[in-house]
Design a protein around this nucleic acid. Structure first.
Lengths: 341, 341
DNA sequence: CTGAAAGCGCTTACAG
DNA sequence: CTGAAAGCGCTTACAG
């Protein structure tokens, strides 16, 4: 089954390749009559232009890249889903790579994508990424930051209004009469700052003094298992020092859901002893133990808009832009059993 | 920042383009001395071959496609993860599309991928796909079936030993003294047959008569919400007819996890009244309500091997093969609280 | 309105 | 061992 090419069409129609090409692309230079004839044959033979050849000619690959820490993280899966949808809508391909929260793998992912002539990259930076690296990356290839955007770099950034989400969640814990409000964060994640700031502001607004001992900072390394073990040890040690009832704010999906599992193992009752709320986008929140109150983030929309912002960047590659957008999408508080007693 | 090309290298080295190309590809025709010089400049200028041009020349896109029903389904995410890893390891790109369990979208996905000169496709067929469609697809483009493989089509298929998994899980429920063993399946999913067969064989092995009323068949359509509602109504109606304690076998991730949520809402105690085990790959099994016993499937390995089988197919495109492999990877029973009382 | 020609960046028979 | 030439399938200035 040989592929039909312009050459073949031209031959059958007794026209030149250029004319056929223009007819297919609806150029104004071509007569309607010719266009008509060409299109008929295109349909009859089911001609499909060779996109690789087109790409070579136009110098683009029509492919975008997405780099995220863990595809199996449901929140990040949703970012991917949104980005993929946007790619389809814009007739582009999307490939993704995982950094596994490892800066070295992350760098390799960027290099590999650059090497493949990817048109641009959307990145949710891994836990220990430094700004230096992102600066370098942005010079190499059009880049948009997504979700983990607390970096001072000259490009578009699409995130979530984490501060407000954290504020509302903390406020909710306080209203539920929690004597101690604990925040669980992952070391060096680009979302901590804003979320902690929301947490602190809520304390302030309720005349509660901020206590650094109430912020638990977990190594957020390569293996979730190690992280869970660490968190487990820390929680076991610290929980008894806190005044009951306790309220916990989880800073990421992974931290929040695993906190539930750990508390169950340690024998704490949720929400009676400890109520838990966190940034969590899992579809399964309803089936968790207990069903989990969460700050829902529009991950899907974030992925989608990141693609659109990236396209803006790619299309204005040459005109030097120096005003970049930072979008903060709104979160939503979804209350379930883990905070209702 | 203009890209370095072979032409540029050739000019700087006072060599022809062909020689440079051959030197870079380590052709035996080229002297070591020349290779040396070329490679030095390659490193110095950080030359990266234009993959698009290479693809045009070789007639391949070096891109594979994966079509799955729902990327947000953790099990399918793992298939994607494995496939992506394999793609990276083989220096290929992977793109994916979602069918949303909709045969029309599925067909569009295939068309779109074919149009883009994808080298081959891995597909986990959506719930109502008919064999006819797959036969047609296989003629168009190298195709490998993954996970949902109960179709009689001439190509490689990579699945899981579902029958054995279902057998062991059912056996486990029986050993736990469950008076009634209920299976929850989704209508027209390509994995039902084998799993139900394992279920039936376990009954048989324990001298329990198979009762069709114990197989709940849910519409497995586009929206999970609708599915949950349906299942909820059916369970509410049927559960009281069954003899306690009941054992439930869930045929998919989605069905199993949602069954837990529904039972909780209906006020059934798990595992006291109803114990639940199912095919489920969620990372969060530990944190479910209660922690979920499951038949773990090597989804990741399935995705990985599907890519390798697809490459076999692509590389032997011309030699007509007529013996195709069907691989059944082994499952693993992981027991947690939802079946332990 | 149509077509001949150049070129995107590479590979690979073929000649020398 | 090196190089000139053709060609992958397309687009697009340019000429007529």
């Amino acid at each position: 089954m040989k592929n039909i090419t312009l050459k073949e069409l031209a031959k059958q129609l007794n026209l030149s390749i250029s004319t056929v090409s223009k007819a297919i692309n609806d150029s104004h230079e071509i007569s309607n009559e010719t266009k008509q004839k060409v299109k008929e044959l295109v349909n009859e033979l089911n001609y499909r232009p060779n996109i690789v050849a087109k790409n070579l000619k136009t110098g683009r690959s029509n492919t975008l890249g997405l780099i995220i820490p863990f595809i199996t993280n449901p929140f990040q899966t949703q970012i991917l889903e949104g980005a993929q949808q946007a790619a389809v809508d814009h007739n582009l391909n999307l490939i993704f790579m995982q950094s596994s929260e490892n800066t070295k793998l992350e760098e390799e992912a960027v290099n590999s994508m650059v090497q493949q002539n990817i048109d641009g990259i959307i990145i949710s930076a891994s836990a220990n990424t430094n700004e230096q690296f992102l600066h370098k990356m942005i010079k190499q290839i059009p880049t948009v930051l997504v979700d983990r955007i607390d970096f001072d770099v000259p490009t578009h950034r699409i995130g979530v209004n984490s501060e407000k989400g954290a504020f509302l969640a903390t406020q909710h814990l306080i209203e539920k009469g929690r004597k101690e409000i604990v925040a669980i964060t992952g070391k060096n994640i680009g979302v901590n700052q804003k979320r902690l700031s929301g947490y602190k502001k809520a304390l302030l607004a309720n005349y509660i003094e901020y206590n650094p001992a109430n912020v638990i900072n977990v190594e957020y390394g390569q293996h979730t298992k190690d992280m869970v073990k660490n968190l487990s040890i820390i929680l076991e040690r610290k929980m008894k020092d806190y005044k009951n009832p306790i309220g916990i704010l989880g800073i990421t999906d992974t931290l929040t859901v695993n906190t539930l599992g750990i508390l169950a193992k340690l024998g704490y009752r949720v929400p009676e002893d400890v109520s838990v709320i966190g940034f969590a986008n899992t579809e399964y929140a309803e089936s968790l133990n207990p069903s989990l109150s969460s700050i829902f983030q529009p991950a899907n929309a974030m992925g989608y808009q990141a693609v659109e912002k990236l396209l803006e960047l790619i299309n204005h590659k040459n005109s030097d832009m120096d005003d970049f957008d930072t979008l903060y999408l709104e979160t939503e508080l979804i209350l379930r059993n883990s905070t209702s007693d």
